[in-house]
Design a protein around this nucleic acid. Structure first.
Lengths: 156, 156
DNA sequence: CATAAATAAGACAATGTTGTCCTAATTAAG
DNA sequence: CTTAATTAGGACAACATTGTCTTATTTATG
């Protein structure tokens, strides 16, 4: 349904939001989100190219959000990785119908649209502020199922 | 977003619904829906194995719906081809949280759920009954953008 | 029974997604 | 200026999706 890459991108962005506006290294993000490190690197590069993240090379560098969590929605992230693919013209060859999709494709697009709207209306701030503790096996309060997203205490 | 196979399956099923309860050959379905014939054959086989379609081999045979269009929803077809993949347990390793997904995955699942609901609430009858003509270049009234879904007039 | 019309099924190819690994390029700090 | 910590990027591999082709198998009909 939603691709693995979208899942990974959202984990990373939520984690970055939780420590925003600080930057984190790919390693730190990988550890917190349990995403395969080498692939995470690719995903983060993609998000940077799409203007969601910015990066700083070299010692003390890392990756951080471009916008504040308040200004960033789940839809922004999803669209940066893999646009939802709204149906705007008839997928059969028929000349572009614009607003006049056939009944089937109209309904398919409607379904995509409600999902799009659900994503658009959720900012990262909202995700972080969710009161749902949701972590039976740990008492860490975290947006990513308790996988180490507690803000780093102090520099090792 | 929705796979190509889902798109093809829905075209085929909508077409079959439009002539229900008659059977149609794979060839006829392919012509009406503009789906690559050899691949359509695979998709139809899948739908038959999932109990959405039934088939009759040999001369005069073909493929037809198992249920009436009234009893068949878009969700039935989508789930037969490629289940929507609701998120029921934490995708990170954390022991199954059941109803207690973390805030991020709860919202992802919510989005999938609204899409699922949109599909569940649409029967094929509804699609066929849609008053939207939607065919600028043709005055054929059809649920598939005018691609030849007018009921066969008479046997060749 | 022979034939032609159909679906069923398997092998194969092309492409996309996911993932790994190695080498470059950048940069802070001693 | 050298070193170590980082991101950037390219080559490659494994697997899934999409698509084609060929060969069975079934079945109505003359």
């Amino acid at each position: 349904m939603l691709s693995q890459t979208v899942e990974y991108a959202l984990r990373a962005v939520v984690y970055l939001a939780s420590v925003s506006p600080d930057a984190q290294t790919t390693n730190e993000i990988g550890k917190a989100t349990q995403v395969p490190l080498a692939y995470l690197s690719k995903v983060l590069q993609g998000l940077r190219q799409e203007g969601i993240l910015k990066s700083q090379r070299g010692v003390g560098g890392g990756i951080s959000l471009v916008r504040t969590p308040e200004e960033l929605t789940i839809l922004d992230v999803v669209n940066a990785v893999e646009p939802l693919g709204r149906i705007t013209t008839c997928p059969l060859g028929l000349a572009a119908h614009g607003a006049h999709l056939c009944p089937l494709h109209k309904r398919m697009d409607d379904a995509i649209q409600v999902m799009e709207q659900a994503f658009r209306s959720t900012t990262l701030t909202e995700v972080l502020a969710d009161p749902n503790p949701s972590i039976p096996l740990s008492n860490i309060r975290a947006p990513l199922c308790g996988s180490g997203t507690t803000p780093p205490m102090k520099k090792k």
